[in-house]
């Protein structure tokens, strides 16, 4: 009985989702990028790091689908492995933001008006006051460039995003009568936060999560571009762009290809976010 009701809900979700072009295109693009990243673990046309100087700077061909770079390395293989880097850095950074930000936001909302609420919110404001990229550059330059520090630098800026979002959403829920009813039933703030608040803000968090994910991809690319992201020989899209920049007159495809990869990923995630918002929150869609 209870199973069938859930199955119905899932079915309804997919029915609405299939009608949202944003969702369909976004999900397909995102799935493509994730598949490329997964594929790179088991197969790439060439070893991404193998140099082949005689065949350097080749254009698109049957042998090298997306050409070769200045050391003759296969661009397609690098793009595949680069997807891995981008996704993992952005994903862990979002995870950091959700893992720290959401509990903080729920805590602040449960203790609204208290000193803890004040501290959490002021802390958020402060992080927001920093130009995100600037502090990321600062952190990675002092602690040394690399994927881990890039994750931390990007993740820190996800914390206030999720803390603010979940606090604001939770606050509006706390005034709702069903929360009052739960309080009248003797449930404590922690329990209400987990049982009632969190499930009701989950949709919002999912949508924001995809947006932050796409911003994370862009930030990782920017950090890698200035040499503060993942270090060679691990390929990353931003690093590929940095290398291609000086060669743009000779081999424009070296700059175009990684750029398109970034755009496809970010576009896919953004469309997916929009689509999810439409599907998960029918109220919003009606208003738009």
């Amino acid at each position: 009985m209870s199973l069938s009701a859930e199955a119905l809900e899932t079915q309804a979700f997919w029915r609405t989702a299939a009608r949202s072009p944003s969702f369909v295109i976004g999900a397909l693009l995102s799935a493509l990028v994730v598949l490329a990243a997964l594929l790179s673990f088991v197969w790439t046309p060439y070893d991404y790091a193998a140099q082949d100087i005689p065949n350097k700077l080749q254009g698109l061909s049957a042998a090298h689908w997306l050409g070769t770079d200045q050391y003759g390395r296969d661009v397609f293989s690098q793009v595949l492995v680069g997807a891995r880097t981008s996704i993992s850095v952005a994903l862990v950074a979002v995870g950091l933001g959700v893992g720290v930000g959401v509990p903080l936001g729920l805590l602040a909302a449960a203790l609204r008006g208290s000193l803890i609420d004040e501290i959490v919110m002021r802390g958020n404001d402060l992080i927001f006051a920093f130009p995100a990229l600037l502090l990321a550059i600062l952190i990675t330059s002092v602690f040394g460039p690399g994927a881990i520090n890039a994750i931390i630098a990007i993740g820190i800026f996800n914390i206030p995003v999720f803390a603010r979002l979940s606090r604001a959403a939770a606050l509006s829920l706390w005034t709702r009568e069903f929360i009052l009813a739960a309080r009248a039933a003797g449930k404590g703030a922690a329990r209400i936060s987990v049982e009632h608040i969190l499930p009701n803000i989950l949709n919002l968090l999912i949508v924001q999560g995809t947006i932050q994910f796409s911003l994370g991809i862009l930030a990782e690319a920017a950090l890698a571009y200035v040499g503060l992201g993942a270090q060679p020989p691990v390929p990353s899209w931003g690093k590929m762009l940095a290398d291609a920049q000086t060669l743009v007159a000779l081999a424009p495809h070296l700059a175009i290809v990684p750029g398109l990869a970034i755009i496809a990923t970010v576009l896919g995630l953004n469309l997916l976010g929009d689509g999810l918002r439409d599907v998960l929150d029918p109220r919003l869609r009606r208003e738009r």
């Binding site: 796409s214 862009l218 690319a221 920017a222 571009y225 931003g238 762009l241 291609a244 920049q245 743009v248 700059a255 175009i256 990684p258 750029g259 970034i262 755009i263 496809a264 970010v266 576009l267 953004n270 469309l271």
Partner: peptide, 15 residues
């Protein structure tokens, strides 16, 4: 705008 948001500014600069 959907496309514009997805474009990294430094790549756009290179282009």
């Amino acid at each position: 705008t959907q496309l514009g948001i997805a474009v990294p500014n430094f790549w756009f600069a290179i282009m």
